[in-house]
Design a protein around this nucleic acid. Structure first.
Lengths: 248, 248
DNA sequence: CTCATATCTGTTAAAAAATAACATTATCTA
DNA sequence: TAGATAATGTTATTTTTTAACAGATATGAG
């Protein structure tokens, strides 16, 4: 990286965006040269080329993050859960996209709460709100920005939680709830153990799918919030287990 | 926002990037229509237009983080430190902007390492590299995206670290190193305690400034890396303490 | 219901931007 | 210094974007 590219990067980070024409003039070089610089910076993961210029590479969320974010369904489910949160209580939000949507709603509400989580996106979403945020330490997963592992479990074992809110990768109305990561399953079990109440929030399409590891029996869960595409048979089975079922 | 724009946004967030031609085909509309949608999303701060498409709007988190990022000076200092990192070792990177710059360089190098940190931006920067990342749990500070508090200290006390790399808010060539947060100072002390070697990386302009709390004596530190604007008097004082001093 | 109005979409031509290919200049090294 | 290598500039071509307008669709008041 040459001097000009360094300074270009500094200017980029300082202002949040640069324009090719402007920079060409500033450095007294041809626009083509700036283009080549931006190509270089992009190739090295330092910038993203935009229309007539570039912006800094997004820092916290890597682009290839396969995080299905805020869909209309998730927002409805999360909004329903919002009603069930008591001010001043301690709530654990386990990693997941629906819980992330919930966190974003909470950030807007700005209730006095303590949130415990093992998800970096959730902690970030709650940054600089009135909410006290405790992030559980542990090993960073390579698949998503969250923390798992024995250290995380041990850490969690010393807490008491009023309400655990979690999603799932798969659900079966008779068998229980599944996730695709063993470490995460262990953490979920520990979370449930130290929690007074457990609510699962999940899109109905997860029902009928089993993932790698079961982390909770149906009976371990106090309530489920899901969308109105849930099959009648599943609704009946869940009701038979005496679970509070909320359909949005 | 209409139905198509909503879905476009969902697709954008899900995949991290969309292309105009593809979306035009997917929705069976003219490319011009997708262009107009992307213009709309950009105007509402939801997306950034790129060459043939768009990416999600980068979520900028903390003002203090954007302010002092990657400068040429920091990169030089961090590059020097890079030489001192042994493959396969366990390195702690304490929160700070210079250490963040270092983390970004490390992410590009992709060495086999274990990195322990209490900084969310640092952990995020190392996401999806060959580096094993351990994030120390704790309470999220309201001033920057990092974790401190008794829980973090206790967590750390159980580790052994080969090399601690930390910055500082203030330094005095006779007195030692300072930070402006009491909790963070305690964490730094604990980190130093469990580390074989301690290196401070900091811009020279921090010298001569004292911040709220001292977290290390000069003698506690094995090496300092700083830039060539360090005053002669400070250089002499540091040399007299027998510290390895690297000027970039 | 109907007409008028506003909104949305598609089409085209023109403008702007990006690229590739080659020419020129600068830099390095033996 | 000569020769090689890398960086930059220039130009023509291709691609992308825009603006402007025309047609289609939706909206709403009377």
């Amino acid at each position: 990286m040459n001097q000009r590219q360094q300074e270009l990067l500094d200017r980029l980070n300082r202002t949040g965006k640069i324009l090719i024409e402007e920079e060409a003039e500033h450095f007294s070089v041809a626009p083509m040269t700036i283009r080549r610089d931006l190509r270089f910076l992009e190739k090295n993961g330092l910038a993203v080329q935009t229309k007539n210029g570039a912006i800094p590479k997004p820092k916290i969320y890597a682009a290839p993050l396969n995080m299905a974010e805020d869909s209309a369904i998730k927002r409805k489910i999360a909004t329903k859960l919002l009603e069930m949160i008591e001010p001043l209580s301690t709530v654990m939000l386990s990693t997941g996209t629906t819980t992330l949507t919930l966190a974003r709603l909470l950030a807007q509400q700005n209730l006095p709460l303590t949130i415990i989580t093992n998800s970096i996106p959730i902690a970030s979403a709650l940054f600089q709100t009135r909410i006290k945020v405790i992030l559980i330490g542990g090993e960073l997963r390579t698949t998503s920005l969250d923390l798992v592992g024995p250290a995380a479990e041990k850490y969690l074992s010393e807490y008491h939680i009023d309400l655990l809110v979690t999603g799932c990768d798969g659900a079966d109305a008779e068998e229980g709830f599944y996730t695709s990561d063993l470490n995460l399953a262990n953490l979920e079990k520990m979370s449930a153990k130290v929690s007074d109440k457990v609510i699962v929030i999940t899109e109905s399409r997860k029902f009928g799918k089993k993932a790698l590891v079961k982390f909770a029996e149906i009976g371990d869960v106090d309530a489920i919030i899901t969308d109105n595409r849930l099959k009648t048979i599943d609704r009946e089975l869940l009701n038979r287990h005496g679970i509070e079922l909320y359909i949005t």
